[in-house]
Nucleic acid binder design. Sequence first.
DNA 1: ATATTTTAATATACTAGTATGGTAGTTGAT
DNA 2: ATCAACTACCATACTAGTATATTAAAATAT
Lengths: 224, 224
Amino acid sequence: MISKIEFVGSTRDYVYRKVKDQIINWDYKPGVKISEKEIADKLNVSRTPVREAFLQLAQEELLKIVPQSGTIVSKIDLELVEEGRFTREHIEKAITREACEKLDDNQLILLKTNIAMQEFCIEKGSHSRLFQLDEEFHQILFDVCNKKRTWELIRKMNSHFDRLRVLRLARNHNWNIVVDQHKEIFTYISQSKPDLAEVKMEEHIKLVIVEKEELKIKYPEYFK
Amino acid sequence: MISKIEFVGSTRDYVYRKVKDQIINWDYKPGVKISEKEIADKLNVSRTPVREAFLQLAQEELLKIVPQSGTIVSKIDLELVEEGRFTREHIEKAITREACEKLDDNQLILLKTNIAMQEFCIEKGSHSRLFQLDEEFHQILFDVCNKKRTWELIRKMNSHFDRLRVLRLARNHNWNIVVDQHKEIFTYISQSKPDLAEVKMEEHIKLVIVEKEELKIKYPEYFK
DNA sequence: ATATTTTAATATACTAGTATGGTAGTTGAT
DNA sequence: ATCAACTACCATACTAGTATATTAAAATAT
């Protein structure tokens, strides 16, 4: 029972994070069956915290629970991906404008540090760390505007997109362009030029548009 | 056990809707204690479906669960209200633009019917039905753009605002202006004039801005 | 009398077992 | 051979009881 308990929070949270992580990383592939008992046994916990984690994941549409029947890992839904992209684009543009007004000296330093670390990671070639820093950059902008929850919501809305991203992560990701864009966005925000900052942000978000339809043709069994 | 079961779905869903409804309508006031057992006894169900409903409500920040200690109805958080307003404004402006392109004949009739019913309700003075039709009007626009989930998300984000609205619902709500704005927005969308439609929508959303700070001063114990 | 420790009560967190319904495989009739 | 009815199995849904942590009251020491 008391094994390698790497959780700080509740058992439910531990199960939630673990299963979500495994879904995003394709350990559990879209469409496969998965059951409360299976996970409970695997993680050495009872069914209830697993069930509670499942309910949470079902709300985020990563699992599809069919009452009295079974649960499967949701297939990737391109309409959901589009809703996530749409929401992110429009909210983040607005955030960028607002950040121009609200940025204080402390947060300016945070962004500067973040970007410096990004440049460092490019030289070192540590892409997974770069990925984190990318996320962090955007999160800081939401923090500046006092809109942490909105960021979390956008993250949750994009979990299907996250799975797509993993598929192509190894491939041709031009991090140089990404970091350059971050630098430009930062510059415009720090100079309080909302129009220019917004345009750059839009361009930045549209850069990561994925070849969704091609992937759907290549792996049709993983799509809805 | 088998009493007036008015639920079509699961017990969990029944409890969720019931408790949420009671919170929004101030039957359970912000800050009061509430427990799984209390609700379970009151609704004649066991603790688990109540617990699951609680978890859902806690995610929407309508309940605050303190582990091993207790649960209270969340006090109204004006920062959350602002995040909800912000998100709604920017998403709905974008939806309005997109609706100009995507509206088909069938949906056009739906909107026309909706507005006709709104006018009818104004004459009859049935404000609660008007309230529903108002919600429906906006929902149709999201449907037009194939973004049902985004609408649901915005609804959930605004549950604290919904509580504020109930406080002032009886009072001076000028439904005539609201319905006129709906008509104008509809006209511009049907004529595919995105710029004009967007401006009207922004104006429309900003009409319902509530005197938040005044309410906070008047009822400080209900606010965070 | 006040501060500290102990104890009892009570809330959520978790475990385990039962109920219920859906599904697939098997059996039987045509 | 095909189709319908039956049956056995297994999934989630729910119930009930135990574990554990927090909180506040009671007892004790200073």
